[in-house]
């Protein structure tokens, strides 16, 4: 069966076209065209937009807005987003990064979705064409029920303070490989103890999740080996890591406290 491609100059026209059965939105296409090549029969029409608003990056005191069509390479090239460079660089090799979009990453199943883990630790909000904003955490839980016509236009968040943001991707194949696990954390400290913590985990479920119990266990304690110990135990609460060609669920669970500990103490 053939596939037809529809290109629209605005996001709202693309969103309208997604309402038709058998339509699938395409960002950079690294997952969508792969599905075409594998003979995916779930869609027959690919919809995309060249809307320049979706390729824009805005950084101001009010916050950061990254358009859904912004690629990992564009994030890497932006001087105001250096704290996100490790997360953008973690996505595939150079050619994939020139194609892979921020919007597409929000839908990538584990072991993919590394950039989304970083956005989750930044408490990002997701803008959806025609239906306003929602918190990324809620979006990730609901994305499968939002329907094919939910077109993400951008993500917004407040920039972290200098040195508060940390990112780690662990993979077996170097320098590039799919994740065993991914961790992002935004940790704010005052007078030697943690006052605010946001920790996001990749490959600890079928999509990125927040480690709320670990965050609670960290607040009010110093960032020392003893101080973070309760958080490392709490991080295992509610996780359901996948077993895939990269690692077993057991292995991912075993190594999570080790890598989280290293990241928190770094």
């Amino acid at each position: 069966m053939g596939i037809s491609l529809q290109t629209f100059s605005t996001a709202s026209e693309a969103q309208a076209a997604l309402g038709v059965s058998g339509a699938r939105y395409m960002g950079g296409g690294t997952l969508v065209v792969r599905a075409v090549n594998e003979g995916d029969l779930l869609f027959s029409t690919i919809v995309r937009t060249t809307d320049p608003a979706l390729s824009a990056i805005g950084t101001s005191d009010a916050g950061v807005r990254i358009g859904a069509s912004v690629t990992m390479s564009m994030v890497l090239a932006h001087p105001g987003l250096s704290y996100l460079a490790p997360a953008a660089r973690a996505v595939g090799g150079p050619a994939v990064r020139n194609m892979a979009t921020v919007g597409g990453n929000l839908f990538a199943p584990a072991p993919y979705g590394d950039f989304t883990v970083a956005l989750l630790a930044l408490d990002a909000k997701v803008s959806i064409s025609g239906s306003g904003e929602m918190a990324l955490e809620a979006f990730l839980q609901e994305r499968d029920s939002l329907g094919a016509s939910a077109l993400v236009t951008s993500v917004t968040f407040a920039a972290p303070t200098p040195d508060s943001f940390r990112f780690l991707k662990v993979s077996r194949v170097h320098p590039k490989g799919a994740a065993v696990l991914t961790i992002a954390a935004d940790i704010r400290e005052e007078a030697g103890s943690v006052v605010q913590a946001r920790i996001a985990l990749g490959c600890m479920a079928d999509r990125a999740i927040r480690a709320h119990a670990a965050e609670v266990a960290l607040v009010g304690r110093p960032r020392t080996k003893e101080g973070i110990a309760p958080a490392l135990t709490a991080a295992l609460e509610g996780i359901a890591p996948p077993t895939d060609a990269i690692a077993s669920a057991w292995y991912r669970r075993e190594v999570l406290p080790v890598h989280l500990g290293r990241l928190l103490l770094s």
Binding site: T7, G29, T30, V33, R34, E38, I46, G92, A95, M99
Partner: peptide
């Protein structure tokens, strides 16, 4: 591989490295 994984199909499009197996010709 036709999956983006091997890089054998790498070309440059408008000066940027891309995987031709994951790029639709009409784009």
């Amino acid at each position: 591989c036709h999956q983006g994984a091997c890089g054998a199909c790498t070309v440059m499009i408008d000066g940027e490295l891309r995987l031709s197996c994951l790029t639709l010709a009409e784009t």
